[in-house]
């Protein structure tokens, strides 16, 4: 199975945060950047995190680990690997917001969702797009999509 994977190239990141903006837009209701920032910010938040310290900056999102501790720790079965894409998703209906996944993710890339549902929120590799929004809109190729595994 071929699996999409986003590589993080910290040496190229300029900290422009476009990835965050396009991530949140891609996961919004309207998919419209201006509307999102006007009306939808209480409903969606980016699942990519930009970190900065002095001259180092990079963006990081769920690594979709080969062996994922969030799946191991999930008490509901909401956190699961999709056999088709190999990626890890949260079933929002199943999640009860116990935050076991936040406790164990060594990347710190699972967040408490901002909307009323209060369930875990993380990168879904933009399931319904060819290219994840963060990668597509990174101006400096600091986020790069590759495919791993055999086809």
């Amino acid at each position: 199975m071929k699996k999409k994977k986003i590589l993080v190239k910290e040496e190229y990141c300029i900290g422009c945060r476009l990835c965050e903006i396009y991530c949140v837009t891609a996961h919004s209701e309207s998919k419209n950047l201006i509307k999102v920032f006007r009306y939808e910010l209480g409903e969606v938040a980016p699942t990519v995190i930009v970190e900065e310290k002095e001259y180092t900056t990079f963006a990081v999102q769920c690594r979709h680990c080969e062996k994922a501790s969030c799946v191991q720790a999930c008490i509901t079965g909401a956190m699961h690997r999709d056999n088709g894409t190999g990626a890890i998703y949260v079933d929002q209906e199943k999640c009860v917001g116990c935050w076991m996944c936040i406790m164990v993710c060594p990347y710190g890339v699972i967040k408490r969702g901002v909307n009323k549902k209060k369930v875990a929120s993380k990168c879904d590799l933009c399931v319904d797009r060819e290219m994840p929004a963060c990668v597509e809109n990174c101006p400096n190729e600091a986020l790069v999509l590759t495919e791993v595994g055999e086809s």
Binding site: I102, P106, G108
Partner: peptide, 10 residues
């Protein structure tokens, strides 16, 4: 505030 707690667990 439990955000990013897993980094410490790691």
């Amino acid at each position: 505030d439990i955000d990013r707690a897993g980094i410490y667990t790691g």
